[in-house]
Amino acid sequence: MATRKAGGYRNLTGYAFISPFLIGFFGLTVIPVAMTLYLSFTDYNMLRPPEWIGLEHYERMFTKDEKFWHSLRVTFFYTFTAVPLRLIVALAIAMLVAKIVRGAGFYRTVLYLPSIIGGSVAVAVMWRQLFGLEGAINTILKWLGLSGVSWLGDPKYAIWTLILLYGWQFGSSMLIFLAGLKNIPNDYYEAASVDGAGSVTMFFRITLPLLTPVILFNVVIQLINGFLAFTPAYVIFGDGRPLGATLMYVLYLFQNAFTFFDMGYASGMAWVLLVIVGLLTALIFKSSEYWVHYESKGDR
């Protein structure tokens, strides 16, 4: 009896010590997320209490709401171009930085800077200036004798400015790649070069396979980030213009919530997004058996 009680106390102590996390996790994550599930079945405009309407929101979303499908297409396109772009740039830069011996810390810091100021409004505002009709990009194009392009106004190009912005903020992925590169023993390269392998062969035969666990991690994290993209689209284009070309999923969700006062519908959209991202992540993990190489398991 006494020991059981003491054990109870011991657990209590443990819980008490992690309570800051628990309070945050339940108060700010689990409960609100569960609430949105409930709200997605209600008509709720935030100014009045929610009213139960069952599956109506989901029905409209899947059968009637063209904008929902449109925003989904825009977001898929964005994610599946911007994420590979960012990862390729990050890997390329990481390989360059790994070679630098003198002042490596300086380069690492400078290259990481865009990510620190990453999702911030200031960067988006700067982007607007850069790609404006008389902005830096068009000025440079004119020097080169090319005609300027309406980057932000033309539906064909608008989304690309966002993709470029995402690609430019490669810092955190770069650091992770850098760590991964440092973990590859130099012996492998030495042995390979003795055998007469060129640098391209070494990259595809040594570097890439040994980096796959890091790539997996980066792909998953960045994919989730990509689907959640909001700030740049909101600050640079605001309402999905031109012609809905920049109507990202989360932006449309946000419009439903705060412009159309339809919090219930927005909650439903959030859950659809959660399911999509969850499925994709599961798919990637499932596929990882076929392309991720863990050294401990030996060669496949």
Binding site: Y9, T13, F17, S19, P20
Partner: peptide, 21 residues
């Protein structure tokens, strides 16, 4: 012994409270 444990629990709670506040 028991009292000491009570004390630890209290201490932890106070820490948590301080963090939240």
């Amino acid at each position: 012994m028991k009292r000491r444990r009570m004390f630890t629990v209290l201490l932890a709670l106070m820490l948590a409270l301080a963090a939240v506040l």
